[in-house]
Design a binder for these strands. Structure first.
Lengths: 156, 156
DNA sequence: TATTGTTATACTCTATAACTATA
DNA sequence: TATAGTTATAGAGTATAACAATA
């Protein structure tokens, strides 16, 4: 292993990854894909994708939030959120209520069914977390990663 | 800050992120988005996206590779790679040559123009890396992250 | 029969722009 | 005039399936 070119443990092939082995964006992307695939697999019984889960979490913890505030909190476009909420509302997991003070705005809430789905999701997330702990080399490594990445979790 | 709910430094709003603050998949995803956006911004003069850059790197370091081997090395579908290579071949950066031993297969190579583009990309990647070092809290944090994530960079 | 590359389809996600109804 | 939500479009990326040529 050199300073530029990190060796991976590849048994079947002898691919030279060059600078990619030390490229944070590259390894970050592939790690993230692994985590999301495990998340989706684990969440199959509830048919919840990561983005949908994060919407349920934020609404649960911040009931009455507007769509703009929700989109901003999650770092997604408000246009993208509309589709996400349409799907979740069709499934009766979330509810758009008219906002008291501003008739343009919606106050987002989980339905009782949405609360139950979230509770079930949290159980499965615990299972998923165990898989991640294993895959990332134990709780210490997991916590180190979360600590080093936490600043990206919320805007500003 | 509790064990469950990490506080972010949010000035303008008071969003409760609940378990997302400690969710590796969530912070991994948002960190990865930041890095890719900075990569794309930095690479604007060359109009190279992360996936395109990674294809150039692997071909440069493993000339003659088949499409199957290339897709496998990068962890993408071979069907997806076809489109990627079509675009890069249209721009005369890569070349599909007939493979000597197997007439179904292509041997991938960079053109001289592709080699020059990659050299320019490596310069810009150095700039991008400096931005990442800053954003992730210095070289120590950067190296720790790469080390903890490196196992995902290559299959198996 | 199996594999390489290709085409096609469907869905998710990102990024914009423009529209409506309210403010 | 600005903002909240919506609609529409284009492109990237993921996941499949099926096909032709070749092994």
């Amino acid at each position: 292993m050199t300073a530029v070119s990190r060796d991976f443990n590849v048994q079947e092939s002898t691919i030279d990854y060059g600078p990619l082995g030390n490229d944070l964006g590259y390894v970050l992307r592939r790690a993230q894909l692994w985590v999301f695939q495990d998340f989706i697999r684990t969440m199959t019984p509830l048919d919840l994708r990561p983005a949908q889960y994060s919407v349920l979490v934020i609404i649960h913890h911040n009931p009455g939030l507007s769509q703009i505030a929700l989109a901003s909190a999650l770092g997604i476009e408000r246009a993208r959120l509309v589709r996400l909420l349409d799907q979740l509302e069709e499934r009766k997991l979330v509810e758009r209520r008219p906002a008291a003070s501003d008739r343009r705005s919606h106050a987002m809430h989980l339905t009782p069914q949405g609360e139950r789905a979230l509770a079930g999701a949290l159980d499965l997330v615990a299972t998923h977390r165990l898989a991640c702990l294993e895959e990332f080399g134990g709780p210490n490594n997991y916590e180190t990663l979360v600590r080093l990445l936490a600043r990206f979790g919320a805007p500003q």
